[in-house]
Computed example of a mutant assay.
Amino acid sequence: MTTTTPAESTGDGAGTPEQDHFSQVYHLIMAAWGSQAVRAIASLSVAEHLDSGPLSAQDIALRESSDPAMTYRVLRAGAALGLLTHDTEQGTFSPTPMLAVLHEDSPVSLKHYAQAAIGPAFWLPAVLLPEAVAAGSPQAVQALGSTVFEYFGKNPEEARAFGAAMTDLSTPVIREAAAVIDVGTATTVLDVGGAHGVFVSELVHRNPRLTGSVLELAHVAEAVAVEARERGLEGRITGIAGDFFESVPTADIYLLKHVLHDWDDTACHAILSNIRDAMPPGARLFVVEMLIGEGGASSGAALMDMAMLFATTGQERDLSQFDALLAAAGLCRTRAVALRSPYCLIEAEVR
């Protein structure tokens, strides 16, 4: 039996420093095609199909109604990337532990993120990254005909996929954040721009006396009830259709996760000011974002910042920049808790 493993399929060998650098940069360039191969593997539900054991490309193509030859080539790329092993004698593919991350039932799944993060809404503006740098402005309108969020409003299927992707990306850090939030005497919590409501659901689940709401655009708010029902929280969490640039409902606790990085300072000021204006005495705000460290950005934060650069008006920020945003809106930071790198939980109250 001949099995192709990732280490054997790279085609790399020791060379001169110049050759090694060439190879490293070449792989950085080709990573774009690799990410699309990962997207295709997620779309084909390869992880789920292989639950029953090794399968050939033809087996998977039959189940997915895809082209067998093309499916084989994508699976072969998956083996080169370390997601699969390839038994070339039997003509079958088997999962590696990495593939489990693309399984919809994984507790740390990135199945939906793999499909949405490099789907048209971000892939097309990404091609215009050099133009964004030259112009000093994002290129979503040039690539999509509208801003990213307007695009999602016109394309509900992609909007739902993006919401599921944000759930994938957020779930592990949300569990950490919810575990360190002391709700005190609070009884109401509002997740501002909280997509399907995973953050508020986790916090409400941990604190039986809490009831929660999610403020989202109308086409997103409808999905909140589905998330609540799936978590057994029906009746304790509701979706509120609205716009955080216009007004924010009153609550004891406010959650703001992966929102500020989408917007420039002026827009962030509007969001935070609306929250501050709605906060009753004793209310608190909890912000979860990637953090640029004092020694520089991690690869995760730096690459997410590239997405913000070409697709939105926002950016990833360091702690001093968040402090400045809060202060400008009449808020002050009372605590910052490091979560899994590069995430941070920032707690704030009215100044």
Rank of each mutant, 00 (worst) to 15 (best):
215 L>N: 10
331 L>G: 00
21 H>P: 15
101 V>Q: 10
253 I>A: 00
197 G>T: 11
257 K>R: 15
14 A>K: 10
194 G>W: 06
67 D>F: 06
53 G>Q: 08
15 G>D: 12
8 E>V: 13
303 L>Q: 11
351 R>W: 12
230 E>V: 12
102 L>A: 06
71 T>Q: 01
243 D>G: 03
125 P>D: 11
240 I>Y: 09
44 L>A: 00
81 L>A: 01
282 G>W: 02
341 S>E: 15
103 H>P: 03
223 A>W: 13
163 G>V: 10
153 G>H: 09
215 L>Q: 13
50 L>D: 02
51 D>F: 08
33 W>D: 14
345 L>S: 02
210 L>S: 00
129 L>K: 06
325 L>G: 05
28 L>D: 10
26 Y>P: 15
331 L>Y: 10
223 A>N: 11
32 A>R: 15
7 A>R: 04
163 G>E: 10
180 V>H: 05
241 A>D: 03
256 L>S: 04
126 A>W: 03
129 L>V: 11
255 L>V: 02
280 P>F: 07
50 L>G: 09
189 V>I: 13
188 T>I: 09
190 L>Q: 07
230 E>A: 11
230 E>P: 08
160 R>T: 15
9 S>V: 15
106 S>P: 05
176 E>F: 07
191 D>N: 05
258 H>N: 12
276 R>Q: 12
333 R>C: 12
78 G>W: 03
255 L>N: 05
291 L>I: 03
239 G>F: 10
195 A>T: 05
181 I>M: 04
64 E>S: 00
84 L>A: 05
192 V>W: 01
4 T>Y: 09
195 A>D: 10
100 A>G: 11
196 H>D: 13
128 L>M: 09
306 M>H: 03
297 A>D: 07
14 A>Q: 11
303 L>D: 08
104 E>M: 11
201 S>P: 08
13 G>N: 12
153 G>A: 10
135 A>E: 05
341 S>Y: 14
238 T>G: 00
51 D>T: 14
77 A>D: 08
343 Y>G: 02
33 W>E: 11
91 G>A: 04
63 R>S: 02
25 V>E: 14
221 A>V: 14
304 M>E: 10
170 S>W: 01
229 R>E: 15
6 P>G: 13
149 F>Q: 07
80 A>V: 06
59 D>H: 01
16 T>A: 12
